[in-house]
Nucleic acid binder design. Structure first.
Lengths: 217, 217
DNA sequence: ACGTACACCGTACGTCGTACGCTGTACGTC
DNA sequence: GACGTACAGCGTACGACGTACGGTGTACGT
């Protein structure tokens, strides 16, 4: 059992493998045994670099969130609206690239990377002229919107193995006579496949709403 | 092994027991074995009335959602704003009474009760003068807000076994010099324990935002 | 040359969801 | 009454899971 001549087991390597695996096979397929196979080590060897599965989850969020790169070049410090928009669009990109992230968002303990994002949003609001109380509300609304949207997208797009059949099953159980508006709604989903439109609408709803309260408290 | 002289095993009884158990011990503590113990039958007997665990989850959501009772008495059909507000407040009540629901919301296949809620919200918007497209957007924003808020509340209030210590651990790892706004934000959480304020703020943000788009498309 | 520390991992325990097949009762048909 | 069938209930078993524990070997400070 040589301990050298192997690439050396690292926390970073483990977490990166976990992210890659979850991207490929989904979060619920990720077990400590499969992760060890992926890394190429015994199952229990993982525990030399990781506390437990929750620790892996938290580290995965941090790892994936690390390539966040909001495009705020040339934006003034107090240009809170375009800044928040850039942060939101970029965050949605990361959340979309890693479908498992929204699941973990509220479960995993926030690390430094997530905290930096938090500070970023809050600082943007405060520099934009919002009071601490309004920045508080704005932050929560922002978080809710972006992550919630990504979560819905993830569960509806990927969570279902056969979206077409699932939608048909849903329509079969909701007669148009008693649920005309629901059927109409589902049809809108079937027609245009543009969730980008939804996201932009909700984001503007949020930003517009916040702006109206900028002077308060 | 008498099959009678026992209260008779029913799908309803199983689901009700599952809801009660999850309310008491949490969703992750709910296993098919423990549920069987709760009901007072063998584990596999459950499967005579239930497809699998996912089926139990979906039925739990339907069961809990069934005592929804929005206070819309005396409200005009086209009074969409107070109607939506009443629906939201009532839905939040149900989601708060059953902390596990927001977890299952996007996972469980929607049954007739959930569909009725959907139809209720959409009909309210359409009767209020919104176009199909705007009702579509409004519905999603509504869903996102209410369930997302409940989800955050549930994971932060109950998900943590020791909220006090967890918050302190978070503060310990985020120095005030580098993250002044984050610390400020967390302090606001510690000071006033009024999430009602947060919910009302976000709900009005949403309703105000929607109202501005009532004439469109 | 020896002691210690520690990365690695084989084994094992208690849990999970559920497939399978056996039981015994209830009931429709003569 | 006798018999056949259907079906609710459940004991057992299988393959997964997270992870506690203890052994084993290498590397390194002395």
């Amino acid at each position: 059992m040589p301990t050298s001549d192997r690439p050396a087991l690292t926390r970073e390597a483990i977490v990166a493998a976990a992210v890659a695996f979850a991207d490929r096979e989904g979060l619920e397929a990720l077990s400590m045994r499969r992760l060890a196979d992926e890394v190429g080590c015994g199952t229990m060897s993982l525990y030399n670099h990781v506390d437990d599965k929750d620790d892996v989850h938290a580290a995965m969020v941090e790892h994936a969130l690390a390539d966040r790169a909001p495009d705020t070049d040339g934006l003034a410090d107090d240009a809170w609206r375009p800044r928040l928009r850039a942060i939101a669009v970029d965050l949605l990109r990361v959340l979309t690239e890693h479908q498992w992230m929204s699941d973990l968002w509220n479960r995993a303990f926030p690390g430094p990377v997530r905290t930096a994002l938090m500070e970023d949003v809050l600082a943007t609001l405060r520099r934009g002229g919002f009071s601490p109380r309004m920045a508080h509300h704005g932050f929560h609304a922002f978080d809710l919107y972006v992550v919630g949207f990504a979560h819905q997208q993830a569960t509806f797009t990927i969570g279902l193995e056969d979206p077409e059949a699932t939608m048909q099953a849903f329509l079969d159980q909701t007669p148009a006579e008693t649920h005309p508006h629901t059927v109409e709604h589902v049809m809108l989903h079937a027609d245009d496949a543009v969730p980008d439109d939804d996201f932009a609408f909700m984001l503007d709803l949020l930003l517009d709403g916040i702006e109206r309260h900028r002077a308060e408290d």
